[in-house]
Design a protein around this nucleic acid. Structure first.
Lengths: 244, 244
DNA sequence: CTGAAACTTTGATGACGATCAAGAGACTTG
DNA sequence: CAAGTCTCTTGATCGTCATCAAAGTTTCAG
């Protein structure tokens, strides 16, 4: 575990916030150069192999994590032993916000591909955001955004039907890929059908069937985990139209 | 609108944070006397009549609200015109956190009974939380707690069946009443069956049927909106047991 | 290269909750 | 207090998605 942690030194400055190509997505948004360097000084890097946990439910909380490279899922094990996925996170997104409330992580965060995160010790982050007003601002916005995100998911789970949920899921993924400079029309799913289903409150068979259906209708191309969006508007129509 | 706003003066100091019986539930948790007075100085009060909005989706965001007296719901109108309730809030809870992300409220907050809130202008709160470390801490914890709360709701919506959801809802309400010094076994629902259903991802008929069923089984007493919890353990068993 | 394990697809059946419908209480509001 | 509206309850039917099952595909270890 120790050797996974790479402090940022003159040698790997490239990977520091001030040089990071994700800084416009991450907590570093809008920071001045001076302040960026201060943020650099508290960030360490850590690699996580596919399938490995970044943290687990019950672990003491002491840092937030910004995803530098890779893809994660967060999930919770219910008392009955069922896994429920609460989110999928990609580069630039922040993991661990749920831990602040109780100084303990409430969910598991697991890498779905070989990944790398920026470790931001929370006590230091608090000190720094106390010092840098715009960091404090941005931090609050990140937490608020997480709340808003969770609420959209609540709406999805509370009022959409299976195919609507899956269309919404694909559109959301596609948008986030685009925001990161990847193709929005063609990408690899990093998660299984079962994980998608768990996230959307559906069974894996239902996810599979919806994919097949969308495929037959020419909306998407599916080859295992490789997805092509062939008719984005068609997918979007599924959301508006069905409930009228 | 103006006459609803009551600045805190020497005359109504009773209602200031430093004198508030809810301060252990609210943002004021753990503040020293000095700091409490600083918080007092930025708080104004506002009364909201039953059925009236505290704010609406789309309104510019400029303050957070701590509920002093009363009961609220938050909801979102989906594009198709469907209302989805995202939460019910009672005394000591904070409203408006979703607005920070975009300087705009994303949901409506509506009083379900005649209510009174403490208005905390956000820019001033940011300044003050910059000054008072423990206020910053507490503020972050409140946001994180909101995230955790939303995640439990996601689990409820994603993996529980109708009767489990409703049992969980009643237990949750009961606990929150208790925390505020009210009876945990007997209370009035301030919301309609339809609002409960919307919150839980169910139709009003399903809520009604579940109440009747719980009633028949001796778990609860129901007379319209008046609820008595007769067998809390029985209700809790519904949660664990059904999924084994 | 081979076998096992994990993941995916597809079909058949069934259960849960939605929907439709009607009637009975409850609260406004004049 | 009466008329009207909202809210709740209960019954009957239907549709969506879960469940059960089996076969196909991909991945990975040895």
């Amino acid at each position: 575990m120790d050797q996974q942690i790479i402090p940022i030194t003159a040698n790997n400055m490239r990977t520091a916030c001030s040089q990071c190509n994700l800084r416009e997505l991450c907590l570093a948004v809008g920071l001045e150069d001076d302040d960026l360097h201060k943020l650099d000084s508290l960030v360490a890097r850590r690699k996580i192999k596919r399938g490995q946990p970044l943290y687990r439910a019950g672990d003491p909380f002491n840092a937030l994590y910004a995803i530098k490279i890779g893809f994660f899922k967060t999930d919770i094990l219910t008392e009955e032993g069922l896994e429920q996925v609460t989110g999928f996170q990609m580069a630039g997104e922040i993991l661990g916000l749920d831990g602040i409330s109780n100084d303990t992580h409430v969910c598991n965060a697991t890498a779905l591909e070989d990944s790398e995160v920026c470790v931001m010790p929370y006590d230091q982050l608090e000190v720094l955001s106390h010092e840098i007003r715009s960091l404090q601002r941005e931090f609050h916005k990140f937490m608020s955004r997480e709340i808003v995100r969770d609420q959209s998911l609540m709406i999805l789970l509370g009022s959409m039907r299976a195919e609507e949920r899956i269309a919404a899921f694909l559109i959301n993924l596609s948008q986030r890929m685009k925001l990161r400079g990847y193709s929005s029309s063609e990408f690899h799913l990093r998660m299984t059908r079962e994980e998608i289903g768990s996230y959307l409150g559906l069974k894996l068979e239902t996810v599979s069937r919806a994919f097949s259906r969308f495929h037959d209708e020419g909306l998407i191309g599916v080859q295992q985990k490789h997805i092509r969006i062939l008719d984005g508007d068609g997918l979007r129509k599924l959301l508006d139209h069905n409930n009228c």
